[in-house]
Amino acid sequence: MNIFRLAGDLSHLLAIILLLIKIWKTRSCAGISGKSQILFAVVYVSRYLDLVTTFISLYNTLMKLVFITSSFATLYLMYVKFKATYDHNHDSFRIEFLLLPCFVLALLINASFTPLEVLWTFSIYLEAVAILPQLFLVSKTGEAESITSHYLFALGSYRALYLLNWIYRYYAEGHYDLIAIFAGAIQTILYCDFFYLYITKVLKGKKLQLPA
């Protein structure tokens, strides 16, 4: 564990908490993509199957449980409790266009061809693109509430911090994992446009509004 890794995990945790707070306080999931949240739930379940096979540390187990539980809690709030506020019409991204290619890619490019390893790899690829339905929703509506922007910023920062963690680990431990590094870089790049808008608008107290 190094500072970048810890900061990345905390940023990830913060993102999830911000999202739950936003939905709970406003009693609404307007502006949030249910499609992205479904993909994140798939990511966590397929990645954290090792919860039942390998014990790494208490921290590791707890964080995995928090990520899985909170993502299902988010889905419950969106699709059951506050269903009426869900932005159906704008959330029209077809997730099978992400799920299928990621799965095929995981079958083709993985560290070892075993069920757990392929599913782990699938989750890494899928996570890289899971935010696309959310970014698509923001671009369709042309704006995002400030708390939604903070959520996206924290979620995007998490993988960027992991990139620093991987650079650190490469120099400090000689450790690297090309699949994670490649997917993490793609994931971070997808957020760049959003990061720019966040820094130039939201941090200056303006609403995140896309140019018409």
């Binding site: 990830h12 390998t54 540390s57 590791n60 990520f67 070892s112 390893e117 994992d177 994670a180």
Partner: peptide, 10 residues
């Protein structure tokens, strides 16, 4: 190179 070491990451 997905050793148990890398599975420590989330």
């Amino acid at each position: 190179a997905n050793s148990d070491e890398s599975k420590d990451e989330l």
